[in-house]
Design a binder for these strands. Structure first.
Length: 269
DNA sequence: TAAGTATGTTAAG
DNA sequence: TTAACCTACTTAC
């Protein structure tokens, strides 16, 4: 259930484990589209993350493309690969370590041009140094959709998910319902800059923390928030509880099938 | 034990 | 707008 920061974090771990090593690739579950035998025995050249998509490149110019979706998970370890337990879609094994993939939405083999096409479909990713925020700005600027919806659109802000969209809007005190075309260039630049900062930090830590020092549990004498996503946040899944900045009740609503969280007092316009 | 929930995306209606 | 995908965990009974 990861956002882009987790995918980048995993790409770095997979890269460290497998780059320049020959690996055995198989699919104990047998549902690996294209077939593990196309890349098994090959040397891993590089591992890349683009938004929430992960690509493993091999020395025969083929790529494994993985999207975890809502349920997917990587499990990695050092040493011998254990006997497969449960449904493993994809397994990558070197002489030093192993990685197991369960429950992804996408797991397929692509050739070089298919991989390029897949990357082109993904919008600018605030975590990537080569991202072009101008592309995101033009899409936001022309849109009558609410900014909360645009932040979840992977062709606009790749890698942003439900936590980052709620948190960045809170941090910039922007209403989630403001239309894209009503977002000024200065607003947009501020949002983008904050996403770069938050998501880069989230990549290093492998978790999402968005709360400023003055609102941290230690500073406010409150209990640390132990939620499954692991980090300290302002509004995500805090509906019905007091806003950490103003004390108003955090609200929750359904927007395009996903839950949206915001403070009605801090995020007025 | 069953039902509900989740950091997501796509396709059908 | 809804269902489907598919896994693991939490909550309700």
């Amino acid at each position: 259930m990861p956002e882009g920061n987790v995918i980048h974090h995993q790409a770095r771990r997979l890269g460290r484990a497998f780059t320049r090593r020959a690996v055995v690739v198989d699919s104990p579950q047998g549902r690996f589209a294209g077939g593990a035998e196309l890349v098994s025995g090959r040397v891993v050249r590089k591992v890349e993350a683009h938004g929430k998509h992960l690509f493993v490149g091999f020395d025969n110019d083929l790529w494994i493309h993985v999207h975890l979706g809502l349920f997917g998970k990587w499990q990695m370890g050092a040493g011998e690969s254990p006997e497969p337990v449960g449904l493993i879609r994809l397994r990558i094994v070197s002489d030093a370590s192993y990685a197991e993939l369960r429950g992804p939405t996408v797991c397929e083999v692509l050739d070089a041009s298919e991989k390029r096409a897949a990357v082109r479909r993904i919008g600018p990713d605030p975590i990537r140094k080569d991202a072009d925020p101008q592309v995101a700005w033009e899409r936001v600027h022309r849109s009558s959709a609410p900014i909360a919806g645009l932040l979840m659109d992977q062709r606009v802000f790749a890698g942003v998910g439900n936590i980052y969209r709620a948190e960045v809007l809170f941090r910039y005190e922007m209403s989630p319902f403001r239309m894209g075309r009503d977002v000024t260039r200065a607003d947009f630049d501020e949002l983008w800059r904050d996403l770069v900062m938050l998501m880069t930090a989230g990549t290093k830590r492998g978790r999402i923390d968005t709360v400023r020092d003055e609102h941290l549990p230690e500073a406010m004498g409150r209990a640390p928030r132990e939620d499954r996503h692991g980090g300290e946040v302002y509004v995500y899944r805090r509906d019905g509880r007091p806003c950490l900045a103003c004390g108003s009740e955090v609200q929750m609503a359904d927007l395009q099938g996903r839950k949206l969280y915001w403070c009605p007092a801090c995020q007025v316009t």
